[in-house]
Amino acid sequence: MEQRLLTALLGTVCILLVIPAVGCLIHLIRTAILRVIGQAVGGETAWFIANRATFLGVVHHECAHALVAVLTGGKVEQMQLFHPQGDQLGCVIWRPRRLYPGACAIQYTLVSIAPVVFGCCNVYLLWNNIFPLCTRVWQMLLLGYVMLSIFIQSTMSRQDVRVAAKGLPVCAVIIFAVLLVTGADVCAWLLHTDWQGVLEHVLGTA
């Protein structure tokens, strides 16, 4: 029983760290891309790309928040898909609903991490299923722009991180209970997965 408890605890920690880790990785890659662009064509151009030219990614980001808010029972009260104001490029104001005990906490976390999850999934789907169908240069460039826009704007803002933290304790308890009951070993799965093979498959599909 002690081993099962430890396995469930470690699995819970791994799951809770996955999304923030992916978000940090995207942020690092985004920073590197913009730095290269800035060195090549200037800082103002890099700023324009990050905050204006990739507006499709901002729309995708805010739609991800709104969609998950609605799917989890929340009510979207205001939505600005692209309305730059200082560091904020768009926003979704929503209100959680107490459908069951702990519902609000779960909604806070799921809505906050939605752009990271949807961003990674949609870029992967576009790369794997749509990009191979592009036969013309303009098609490749257009789809590349769409994927870059989504990817660059898939990071979690400071507000997203603060809101997500509200629901982490409840989510942790639920994840721990599920892993304990099912006996699933998340850490073993992560360690034994051929991640190099997965990466080669993703990059080699196109």
Rank of each mutant, 00 (worst) to 15 (best):
R136S: 14
G86W: 03
A114Y: 00
V68N: 02
Q78P: 11
A46Y: 06
Y124V: 12
D87I: 00
L67E: 02
Q80Y: 13
T45C: 07
F131D: 06
A114D: 01
N128K: 11
V92G: 10
L34E: 03
G73Y: 15
G43D: 09
V111W: 02
R35P: 05
A46K: 06
W127N: 03
A64V: 08
F48L: 11
V59N: 04
M79S: 09
W127S: 07
N122F: 08
V59I: 14
Y108P: 05
R35V: 08
L99V: 15
L71A: 14
V68S: 05
H27W: 06
L133I: 11
V117A: 02
R52Q: 12
P132Q: 11
E77D: 03
R97P: 04
G42D: 06
N122M: 10
Q78G: 13
F55T: 05
H60W: 11
A69R: 02
W138S: 10
I37S: 01
L67S: 03
C134F: 01
P132E: 05
N128A: 10
I93A: 14
R98S: 14
H83E: 05
P115D: 07
T135P: 00
D87Y: 06
L99T: 15
A32M: 13
I33T: 15
L110N: 06
F55C: 08
L28K: 08
A46W: 06
R95T: 12
L133Q: 09
L67A: 04
A46I: 08
A40D: 00
V92I: 14
A105D: 01
H61V: 00
A69H: 08
G74C: 14
R52D: 07
V36F: 04
I29W: 13
L99H: 15
T72N: 09
P96M: 11
G57F: 10
V70Q: 15
G38S: 09
C91T: 10
N51D: 11
A66Y: 08
P132F: 12
H27F: 03
F48W: 09
P115H: 05
A40S: 09
T45N: 02
H83F: 06
N128V: 07
H27A: 05
A53P: 04
R95W: 12
I33C: 15
T54C: 02
A46C: 07
V76I: 15
W138K: 07
I93H: 13
V68K: 04
E62G: 13
V92W: 10
T31E: 11
F131V: 00
N51F: 12
H65R: 04
